[in-house]
Design a protein around this nucleic acid. Structure first.
Lengths: 146, 146
DNA sequence: ATCCAAGTGTTAACTGGTTGACATGTCCGA
DNA sequence: TCGGACATGTCAACCAGTTAACACTTGGAT
């Protein structure tokens, strides 16, 4: 019973990610994880590797390894910080900003359409989000394992 | 707004998985993904690599690569199918079955306790699961990208 | 009976994550 | 001022997933 919910949760994020990924790949030529990287960076740019890693919830090393290919592809740029020689300052290129703006709008439209489906009659996205956030805060409060 | 829900969803499964993983690691000496492997296999054993891969939602190759270490660790056994020389039949060992039974009960208890927290007053796990399943079926129905 | 398509599992090369070690840079306190 | 603690990014080694190619088995159609 109970563990079925966690199963359902995993299933939902899987199908959601897959749906987003296929839209992004076919229409915009980026993977889902690339989009998340760019959208997150755009939200906090200009910033450094460490801060972006925290925002993405991954390690510094993971970000560090992805930077070269994204820069080569023209999505982001790297610059030196005149005040700190080891710092690498990351920004999104104009092309990257355009992508995030257009694709983000597209994804948003697809997602809101979900809730306008007849089968989703009694479903309020805001309420749902609140419930999930409640669970998150309880879990965080409990500590790693209770 | 809308995409915040997908963000919340990812955050919830992350903290949930992390919580389960720390319990499993500290009390039972397996990772979360090993537990999922064993619990899933136990549900359909005896079975072959291909079927288990489908049940786990991963590729055959991923299962094939994990089998040797799990067998070495004494969690599963591999056997030949007398009717099909290429088939590898997988089963959980008694030790594995015990683990799944005990750890599964433990996880279940932790999880139901979540919903008995005062902050989770208006939260019905069954209702929540139904809502998530509704979203899944709409997404599946829409096809990969709508 | 034979042959070919489909099924089954393994391997190689790749992706993207982890941790731990490391070199280097910054900055504060003695 | 200078010495050590901390910050910062990169590297190596590893883990676990992917797809594509492969070798082998099975079984049915001709």
């Amino acid at each position: 019973m109970s563990d079925k919910l966690t199963f359902t949760l995993h299933e939902l994020v899987q199908v959601l990610d897959q749906s987003a990924d296929s839209l992004l790949t076919s229409k915009y030529g980026v993977t889902g994880s690339q989009f998340v990287f760019l959208a997150t960076l755009e939200d906090v740019e200009p910033t450094d590797v460490t801060t972006l890693a925290e925002c993405l919830g991954v390690s510094k090393a993971a970000v560090s390894k992805r930077v070269p290919s994204l820069a080569d592809a023209g999505w982001i740029t790297t610059a030196d910080d005149p005040h700190h020689k080891r710092r690498v300052v990351l920004t999104v290129t104009q092309r990257g900003r355009d992508l995030v703006e257009r694709a983000g709008r597209d994804l948003d439209a697809q997602f809101t359409a979900l809730f306008q489906h007849p089968a989703a009659a009694g479903l309020d996205p805001r309420l749902l989000k609140d419930q999930l956030n409640t669970l998150i805060s309880i879990l965080r409060q409990n500590g790693p394992l209770s």
